[in-house]
Design a binder for these strands. Structure first.
Lengths: 362, 362
DNA sequence: ATGAAAGCGCTAACAA
DNA sequence: TTGTTAGCGCTTTCAT
């Protein structure tokens, strides 16, 4: 029983006015009180809902926004998405979701899909770099990065400049840690606003905490997009960095487990590890258990991201909490406001939540 | 630097053909090989991408599908969403995401939003009942339910008929457990295909397993949408059901914790509990720890949903696993195929994964 | 204050 | 095989 929806024309006819008048009334334009009332009444009676299709075509853009995350089974991205959705809902805007699997190619395809759909705003936890996002921006998209910046392979391993210390907000070029490099031979970094957690402070606090517990051989276990975190780690532990203690996995849980297990086995001398994300934290707990390493007696553990199950572990995990939901909400605000005002990036605070997974060095 | 995208007209002019020809070529219609080639070349050269806006308006429907879940921070729904996205991506279709918070009102609003957007297909983990979904269907939407069926208050507590025993697929009316009731005085149940896990078998297996361990006072801790699961539980334990052992929480983590804690305190005689979802499992672990109940020594625990962190618990949690990702994928298939063929519902198998959270009764 | 009319980019019917 | 044309539902000048 396919029911044709009422169109603006139907309303106009039923109300005895022109379509333009209906359009005006419904979008708050000027109209005589009595006309307005009649139109409103008729519209309500016919259960009229303006079609976004017509409006979008006319305005040559779809409302709403895209949201790209690497993996929705990672609780942190679930939190982020909830934040975006909450903000979008309060504005009545649809959100088109894409899961990139940390794969720049899939991400690029998804960007193409948005373009095709006329969705010109997107919040992304980026997997690709300038080769994806440059074209998107040139095509007129408003993009806001969340949680991380496009990984620039050459910066992932570069130490940060001391200049962005303590800034409450940071431009992308600050955040990309490019300062001090001759900018000439490189492409200009993308000028895209971003909503990030203060990884630097979070990692620094964690490392200092572990140091205070007597730990000297502290490892970092990272994954895709943890470039800024590992940079912060290097800075926090100070040169010379023991490179055998810095290990990376790809995005999958298997890879995370392999990396964690490999780390524990290759460096039995380590006494503490900081993980760049919750999936890696999970892997570290599992690998430690498998290798009969006691937490925190044999190895202390700090995990980036607070997730509900961190408290369930035995012992409960000490974590660097970042406000995932807030980050999503703020990012959605930014992407919606863009245009009216050039948005600045946002740096949100992190917090070290001490539970039971760290102990004094033995 | 706003760049106007090339339109079909641009391509037509540049290729020296009519717009219809371009449209035909691009949608695989008939055209002479040489024309086709020329059009394709020009289109590629102009970086032409057909605008979904124009097509949608013309066809009076938007492509893609909606996806409604209660809460993306619940890992199970993250898995489900990943499945939907995987299927949609392989078809190049956009997915509009909505998080309902288990609130029928929000859900109804989201349905309205989809309608407005011209999205006429939706996969939903439903929160509301016929009052939401009836109108949606009457408006011409294709809807597929996933994970659960609209809760019918009067059926939530009703025992199932024995007739759907072992069926590999089930119609919604079977699944709504309405059989044996006089259908006359009630509204006809929604005739909507669904992708569900075989809760009944899963719960039955779990209860039998606990029984085998000697447990007699087994509790059920449920949440929104766990109507079929509690029905299965009642059936599995058999009459008379000790109603003090059947407890429900609302969707929030706080409520889940309160319910779990309340259950343990009001019924210290229970020796095992089955939870209807992973958030409730989490709450049960936390509440048990808080009350100094040892798992599995003092209380055995079986959680519905397998999630990565189930293995991290001490002891690792025995779970009823359901294939979240597959469920999402199948649901997306169903909603996309609908129209060509009347889709049947799908019942996917569950599996009891025995880890360490159950022990013999003490 | 209001209506008529021109499209937005596309597809589908109809002609040629 | 191809081109012409008529809209899809809406917003937005431009007259009135």
């Amino acid at each position: 029983m396919e029911v044709r929806r009422a169109t603006i024309k139907d309303v106009a006819e039923a109300a005895g006015v022109g379509v333009a008048t209906v359009s005006r009334v419904l979008s708050g334009g000027s109209a005589s009180p009595e006309t307005r009332e009649r139109v409103l009444a008729v519209a309500a009676h016919l259960d009229y809902r303006p079609s976004a299709l017509g409006r979008n075509l006319r305005q040559r853009r779809t409302g709403g926004m895209g949201l790209f995350v690497p993996d929705l089974t990672d609780t942190f991205y679930g939190q982020l998405a909830e934040g975006v959705l909450a903000c979008a809902r309060s504005a009545g805007e649809p959100v088109v979701l894409g899961s990139t699997g940390d794969d720049p190619e899939q991400e690029a395809e998804l960007v193409g899909m948005l373009l095709e759909q006329g969705v010109d705003r997107v919040i992304a936890v980026p997997s690709g770099g300038a080769e994806t996002w440059g074209p998107a921006i040139k095509a007129g998209m408003t993009v806001v990065f969340a949680d991380r910046l496009p990984s620039d392979p050459s910066t992932d391993v570069r130490p940060p400049s001391p200049s962005d210390e303590g800034s409450g907000a940071a431009s992308v070029s600050d955040l990309m840690l490019l300062d001090g490099l001759p900018p000439a031979p490189r492409a200009r970094p993308l000028d895209v606003p971003a909503v990030l957690a203060d990884d630097r402070a979070g990692i620094r606090t964690a490392v200092r905490y572990l140091r205070g517990l007597g730990h000297r051989r502290i490892a970092f276990l990272g994954g895709p997009g943890h470039g800024r975190r590992v940079a912060a780690f290097r800075e926090a532990v100070g040169a010379p960095v023991d490179e055998g203690l810095v290990v990376f996995a790809t995005g999958s849980r298997d890879s995370a487990y392999a990396a964690a297990s490999g780390l524990f086995q290759s460096r039995p001398d380590l006494t503490a590890v900081v993980t760049g994300g919750n999936v890696l934290g999970e892997a570290a707990v599992l690998a430690a258990r498998e290798l009969d390493l006691r937490v925190p007696r044999d190895v202390s553990l700090v995990m980036y991201d607070d997730v509900p199950w961190a408290e369930l572990c035995s012992p409960p995990l000490t974590v660097i909490a970042q406000p995932g939901r807030d980050m999503g909400y703020r990012a959605a605000e930014l992407v919606m406001r863009a245009g009216s005002r050039r948005p600045r990036s946002v740096l949100l605070p992190t917090e070290l939540i001490v539970r039971g997974s760290c102990g004094p060095r033995h």
